[in-house]
Nucleic acid binder design. Structure first.
Length: 469
RNA sequence: GGCGACGUAGCAAAGUGGUAAUGCAGCGGUCUGCAAAACCGCCAUUCGCCGGUUCGAUCCCGGCCGUCGCCUCCA
C-alpha cells in the first residue's frame, strides 16, 4: 500500500515517492502576522497537521517547516495605523498564533522560520538570480525576470501572454515586464530595512519562502503546501525563482487546501473568510465557545481540497459528533471476556483499522476515516450493552483513541470551568439520588431540569448518574 | 473574459462502471420512575439538467444550468 496524494502541479493523484526514503520534507506557507488569526488559518494548519500525523503514523520521519511572514506592506501599514513598531507587532501576533496552534492540538513544526531571521539567505538567493540573468536591480528594487523562465505558469496553468493581456494594475515603469515581481524592495524612510547590495530594503513576499524552504529542507523537497489562494502568484513565483536558481524540481508534490467560507448574512452569498472582506471568526472566538476537537471534526468531515462552509449550525452538529465519540469511551458495564459479542467486537476493530488506512491512504480522505471510527463507536456501544468488558473492551477503546489521535483528536476535553463547578454538581447529584430513592421524582426532576437550563446534562445509568457540562 | 474546483437525502459529507458510507436532525421501538445516553428499525428506486458511450452510469464523454476559488492583499 502506498499513500496516494493529489498534486496540484500535475492535477493528478500520484503515489508518494519521497526524495529520501522514509523521510518527508514538507514546507507549508504560514501566515502574514498583521492581525488576529482566524479559523481559515486554523483550517490550513489543521489540514497539514493531519497530513503530518498520518505520515508519521505510516512510519515516515516528517521534517515540517512553517514560516511566518513578519515583514511586508500590510504589516507596515497596519502598524502605522496603530502607531506601533511593525516588527514588535508582528512578533506578538506570531507568538499568539503559536499559542493558538497549541490549543488546536497542532503538533509543533520542526521549525518556524521568519523572514526577518533569513535575510542573509534571501540576499544571497537574490544575488545569485541576478548573476544568472534571472533578475535585475532597478533603482533600489530587484525584480525577477519572468521572461527568463520558460516554464513560468506551469503550476497555475497560465501562459505569460494571457497574464500580460489581463493586466489590470498599474505597471511599475522600473519593471521590464508587467509580470515581473519584486525580490527586493527598497525602503522608504521610516520603514523597517536591512542593508543589501541594492541599498536598504526588505524582501519581496515570494523570495522568503524559497529561501527558508531551501535553508531548512534543501533544494528539492517533497511537499509544499498552503491554501489554494496561494497557487497564483505566490507558489508560481516560488517555483520560478527556485528552479531558475537550482535547475532542480523545487517540490515534488504541491498540496493545497480549500478555503473556509462563510455565508454573508447581508448578501446571502457564500464567500471566503478573509481579513480583507472583514467576515472573520477568530480562533480565539471559536475556542471560547467550542472544544478544539469540534474544530478538528469540522475540518475532518470534508475533503481538505474542497471549500468548507462554516456556520454555527455546523459547529453545533460537530459538537454532538464529539459527544458521540466520547460516549464510546465510557467504561464497560460488564466483564464478559469471551463469546460471540467479544468476537464481533474484535472483528470490528480489525475492519475499522483497515478502512481507516485505505481511506487515509487515498489522498487523506478524512471523512471516510472518520466514518470508520464511527462504525467502531457503534461496535463498542453494542459490546458494552452486551456486557463485554475486560481486555477486549479496553483494546477496542484503545484502538479508537489511537486512530482518533492520528487525526489529532484529543477526545479528552479539558473544560477549565468543569473543574471549578464539579464539586457543586456532584453535591446536587448526591441529593437527587436520595430523592429518587425516596421516590420524590418531582423534586428530582426539578434539579435535573434546572441544571439542564444551566447547561449541565444528567444521565442516569445502572452505575449511577453521570453529568456533562 | 481566462484558468481551476465543485453540484449526492432536511443539513453536512464519503464513495463506486453493476445499483448509494458516515454524522447531525426526524420518525417508530427496547431500556428508564420519567428523561437522557445506548441499542434495534425506518428515513436518497436515486446522486443539478439534457444527450451520448455501455448489457448496465451517480461514477466515462459532450452540452447546458448553478455555486465557489484564482487572475499580482490573501491559509
Amino acid at each position: 500500500m502506498t499513500i496516494q496524494i493529489y498534486n496540484s502541479l500535475t492535477r493528478k493523484v500520484e503515489p508518494l515517492e519521497t526524495v529520501e526514503p522514509q523521510v518527508v520534507r514538507m514546507y507549508v506557507c504560514g501566515v502574514t502576522v498583521y492581525d488576529d488569526a482566524h479559523i481559515g488559518h486554523a483550517m490550513s494548519a489543521v489540514v497539514f497537521d493531519i497530513i503530518r500525523r498520518y505520515l508519521e503514523f505510516r512510519g515516515y520521519e516528517v521534517r515540517h517547516i512553517v514560516n511566518f511572514t513578519d515583514v511586508d506592506d500590510k504589516i507596515i501599514a497596519r502598524a502605522a495605523t496603530l502607531g506601533r513598531d511593525p516588527l514588535t507587532m508582528a512578533a506578538q501576533y506570531a507568538d499568539e498564533f503559536l499559542a493558538q496552534l497549541e490549543r488546536l492540538n497542532v503538533l509543533p513544526a520542526t521549525a518556524y522560520p521568519r523572514a526577518t531571521h533569513t535575510m542573509a539567505e534571501i540576499i544571497d538567493f537574490t544575488e545569485r538570480l541576478i548573476a544568472a540573468g534571472h533578475a535585475y536591480p532597478a533603482e533600489g528594487d530587484v525584480y525577477f525576470r519572468v521572461a527568463s523562465d520558460a516554464d513560468y505558469g506551469k503550476l497555475s496553468g497560465r501562459s505569460l501572454e494571457e497574464m500580460l493581456t489581463g493586466t489590470r494594475f498599474e505597471v511599475d515603469p522600473r519593471k521590464e515586464s508587467p509580470a515581473d515581481f519584486a525580490l527586493w524592495k527598497g525602503a522608504k524612510p521610516g520603514e523597517p530595512a536591512w542593508p543589501s547590495p541594492w541599498g536598504n530594503g526588505r524582501p519581496g513576499w515570494h523570495i522568503e519562502c524559497s529561501a527558508m524552504s531551501m535553508k531548512h529542507l534543501g533544494e528539492e523537497i517533497d511537499i509544499h503546501g498552503g491554501g489554494n489562494d496561494l497557487v497564483f502568484p505566490h507558489h508560481e513565483n516560488e517555483i520560478a525563482q527556485s528552479e531558475c536558481l537550482t535547475g532542480k524540481s523545487f517540490a515534488r508534490y504541491w498540496v493545497h487546501n480549500g478555503m473556509l467560507q462563510l455565508v454573508n448574512p447581508e448578501t446571502r452569498q457564500v464567500e471566503k473568510m478573509s481579513k480583507s472582506l472583514g467576515n472573520v471568526v477568530t480562533i480565539d472566538s471559536f475556542l471560547s465557545q467550542y472544544d478544539a476537537d469540534v474544530f478538528r471534526l469540522i475540518v475532518l468531515s470534508s475533503y481538505y481540497r474542497s471549500p468548507l462552509t462554516y456556520n454555527t449550525e455546523i459547529a453545533a452538529d460537530n459538537a454532538r459528533k464529539l459527544d458521540r465519540l466520547l460516549g464510546a469511551l465510557l467504561p464497560a458495564l460488564g466483564s464478559n471476556a469471551s463469546g460471540p459479542a467479544v468476537e464481533s467486537l474484535n472483528q470490528s476493530v480489525e475492519r475499522t483499522r483497515s478502512a481507516f488506512l485505505s481511506a487515509m491512504d487515498a489522498d487523506f480522505n478524512t471523512a471516510g476515516a472518520l466514518a470508520a471510527l464511527f462504525e467502531l463507536v457503534r461496535a463498542i456501544n453494542v459490546a458494552r450493552d452486551a456486557g463485554v468488558g475486560g481486555d477486549a473492551f479496553s483494546a477496542a477503546q484503545n484502538s479508537l483513541r489511537e486512530l482518533a489521535s492520528v487525526l489529532g483528536l484529543r477526545l479528552n476535553p479539558q473544560h477549565a470551568k468543569q473543574q471549578e463547578v464539579a464539586p457543586f454538581i456532584e453535591l446536587l447529584i448526591e441529593l437527587r439520588t436520595s430523592l429518587r430513592k425516596a421516590k420524590q421524582f418531582e423534586l428530582a426532576d426539578t434539579i435535573r431540569t434546572r441544571l439542564a437550563d444551566l447547561g449541565v446534562t444528567l444521565e442516569d445509568g445502572p452505575q449511577g448518574t453521570r453529568y456533562k457540562v
